[in-house]
Write a protein that binds this DNA or RNA. Sequence first.
DNA 1: CTGAAAGCGCTTACAG
DNA 2: CTGAAAGCGCTTACAG
Lengths: 330, 330
Amino acid sequence: VATLRDVAQRAGVSVSVVSAVVSPNRYVRMSQQTRERVLKAIAETNYVPNRAARTLRMARSGVLAVVVPKIGNPIFEDMLAGMQDAAEDLGNQILLAEANRVRPGSDLLSSLQGDGHVDGFLIRPTPTMDATVVHELVPRHVPTVVLDAWEHPEPAWINVDDEGGMRVATRHLIELGHERIGFLGAPVSRRVQGYRTAMDEAGLPIQRSWVITPGFSQDDGMSALTRALTAKRRVTAVVVNNVLTALGVLAAAHDHGVTIPQDLSVVALHDIVLADYARPALTCVRLPMYELGHRGVHALAEFVAGRRPPSGTIAEPAPQIVVRDSAAAP
Amino acid sequence: VATLRDVAQRAGVSVSVVSAVVSPNRYVRMSQQTRERVLKAIAETNYVPNRAARTLRMARSGVLAVVVPKIGNPIFEDMLAGMQDAAEDLGNQILLAEANRVRPGSDLLSSLQGDGHVDGFLIRPTPTMDATVVHELVPRHVPTVVLDAWEHPEPAWINVDDEGGMRVATRHLIELGHERIGFLGAPVSRRVQGYRTAMDEAGLPIQRSWVITPGFSQDDGMSALTRALTAKRRVTAVVVNNVLTALGVLAAAHDHGVTIPQDLSVVALHDIVLADYARPALTCVRLPMYELGHRGVHALAEFVAGRRPPSGTIAEPAPQIVVRDSAAAP
DNA sequence: CTGAAAGCGCTTACAG
DNA sequence: CTGAAAGCGCTTACAG
C-alpha cells in the first residue's frame, strides 16, 4: 500500500505538504499547482491515510462507542440512524455495543476506554447498567454522553420528552371520552408523571390499582393486562409505557377474548413500523428518537473536542400522536 | 496514561519483557519472579496496551467489519449474537455497518479497507449490493466472507440451509394434509427449490399461479395475499419466504376477513421472538442463524490469518419446525 | 512557501 | 534469559 512518503516522492514534494493536503481540518497555504500535483499523485497511487498511524500520533481515533441495551430493539432504529448520519457528517465512525457485553471490568469496556481505541461513549442506559458502567466511566474523564436516562447526575445528558409523550398519549384518550385510564408498563418516573399530569389537567382521579407496572418485555404485557381488566374499577383505556409491551397486550387481549378498541383502548409510547402491522394497528406517540441520536453524537463530538456540550431535553419536534386503530371512544 | 516504558521502568525490566507479558499469543521464557514483577507493575500503573500503536506495528487491527442490510432486522439478531460471541472469543471486535451506508466508493468502504482500520469484511449481502460492493472488495484481496448469499463466486461463503428450511416448512403442511400449497415471498431460488422439492417428493403438482413473489417487506405481504386467495385453484396453505412478510400476511388476512389457520395455513421461514406474539402465533422454521454468525467470524479470522477457510452450508443444527398456531389441517 | 526531523507506543529481530 | 534499537506511517513544531 502507498504511504505518505510514496505520494510525496511521486509528487516531488515533502511529506508535510501531502499531509496538509489530506488532513481535512488543516489549512496550509500552497500553490494551486503544488496541490494539484499532490492530488494527482494520490489518485495514481490509490493512497489512503493509515488510520492507526494517525490515531497514534494524534491520540484520537475518530471512533465513537455507542452502547444500547439491545441492538435489535426496533425502538432504537431511528436513534441509531440519527447517530450514523451525524457521525458521517463529522467524519466519525460508530462502534456499536450491547450493554450486556459492556459489563464493568469487561474487556470491551476497559480496552475501549483505556487504549484510546474510542474517543468517547454515547450510552443509552438500561436500569441495570447506568449505576455501574456509567459511573465507572465518568471519574476516568472519558467523554461520555448519556441518552434518555432516568436519572442523570452525569457529565452530559440528552433526553427525549417522554413525560410529554405520556401526557399526549393520555390526553388523546381523554379527548376520546375516556375517564378511567390506566398506566401500563415499567414505572419510569417521568413517564408516570406525564400520565398523572394529563389526568390532573382534566380533573380525572387516578385509582391506585390503575398504575400497573410489570416490566419492559412483551411477556410482562401479557400478565399485566389481566390485572388491568380485573381491577375494582375496570379501566376503559390504558397508556402503555412501551410499544413492545403494547404488542404483548394485544396478544394477551386476543387470548382473553378482549376486543381492542371496543373493550379497551390502547395508546403506546414510541412509534415503530411494527405498530402499523399489528391488528388492530397500534395508536402510538412518536418521540424524536432520530434527533436524540443525532444530537447525542454532536454533543459527544463537542465533548471530545474539549468543549462542554449543553445537556437538555429535545423540544423539537414535540411528541406527536399517531392515530391508528387501537384507541376509540368508550 | 501509562506506557510500556513506564511499566518496564517500574518493574525494572526492559520493554521487550513487558511486551511479551501483555501479548496474548507470544510465548517467551522468563522467570516466574520476573513475570510477577511485571504483572504487579501493570496493575499498579493501570496499564492498557495502546491499540493504535499495536495496529500500526503489526498491520492488523483486530476489528472485523460486519455489513448487514438492516441492523434492526430481527432476523439478524441471533446471527449478530453469534458474531459477537465468536469475536469475543478471538479477541476481535465487530464494527457493524448497514449495507446502504457502504455504497461503492463510499467513505466507509474505501476508508475501512484502504487504511487498515479493519482486518476484513463479513458481509450478509442484499440483492442490490452483492453485485457491487463484494466485487469491489474481492480483487483488492481484502479478506471477505459472504454469508447466506444467493450466489457465490466469492472468496469464501457460508450459508444456512434455506433450501432445506423451505422443504421442512412445506413438508409440515403436507403432513397436516394440505395439497394445494403456495409459495409466498421473494423468489430466492434456493428457497423456491426447497418448496418444489417437498411438493415433488409428495407427488403434489404445483400450479404456476401458486408461486407468488412480491418482495421482502411487509407491505408486499399484504398485496400478495390477495392474489393467493383469488387464484384459480385457491391454495389452502402457504409457505412464506420470510417471517416479516408473514407478519404482513397476518395483517392482510385480518383485513380481508380471512381467518388463519381455518381459511389459510401459514408457515414462515426464520424464527423470531415476534412470531410468538403475533395472533395467531406464527408457525416457523428455525434456521441456525447464530451458528451462521459464529462460523462466519471464525472463517474470516482464518482468512485474516492467511489461511484458507472452508466454504460450505451449515448442516448442524438442521432447519427445524417450530409449531405454533398459524398452520392446521385443512 | 517547503523540507528535515522528532516522536506517538508498540513489536521484533538481534546482540549480549 | 534480558536489553538496545529500528521502524510501522503519520503530524507538527521548527528551521530555512
